[in-house]
Design a protein around this nucleic acid. Structure first.
Lengths: 100, 100
DNA sequence: TTGGAATATCGGAAAAAGTCGATATATCTT
DNA sequence: AAGATATATCGACTTTTTCCGATATTCCAA
């Protein structure tokens, strides 16, 4: 786990927002439902993209950034990729701050 | 306290190192002493600069970045500016991670 | 008050990040 | 097999960050 890369990933307003949106999907994604949401695999790219107001390509890249540093997990199901918070990494981040 | 700015400040190898160096100055700065070190105001710019291997202007700017976001305090004494960790902000950062 | 030392600020070149539109890939449906 | 849909990747352009050298500022000492 590269500290600098982790902080870089967090040093962006939209990526931080995504992380908090994913904390309670039901609350942040109105039509969150089994079609492309629900269960516990996470939320698909399209929902996140619409909410962010940025383009599809940008959000896809942001999600891949968050995934690369381990802050979210990605699960492909059919044509959708569901992204979900990786609480383990986030917790590790907390203890990382302590060692700062 | 702007989260994004805080993470940006931490998203740099040298700035992270400075923060850990300042955690135990006696250990990281060989000739740390009253002349330009010691007491508890912190460590002067020159020491940090030499240890980092980067130029004076770069380190001065990095320290001002860390100061701007509140991660360190700065105390001018004569021709020296002493920088010291601001444990309060760092602790706040820890709880900020929890709210992530 | 002049020179030297420590730090800060300015201006710039190069690298990285932000963000887009266009296109490619994968998958589902019919 | 063809078209539609979701996501990923590519190329380009703009903005930001990194890091430097040169210069300015501040303060001390002779």
């Amino acid at each position: 786990m590269d500290q600098v890369e982790l902080f870089k990933a967090l040093a962006n307003k939209t990526r931080l927002q995504i992380l908090t949106w994913l904390k309670s999907p039901e609350e942040h994604f109105p039509d969150y439902e089994p079609a492309c949401g629900s269960t516990d695999v996470g939320v698909c790219v399209g929902y996140i993209q619409k909410k962010s107001g940025l383009t599809q390509s940008t959000i896809s890249e942001y999600l891949s950034t968050l995934h690369r540093v381990g802050l979210v997990s990605a699960t492909r199901v059919g044509q959708w990729t569901y992204y979900k918070r990786n609480e383990e990494t986030i917790a590790t981040l907390g203890s990382l701050i302590d060692t700062l």
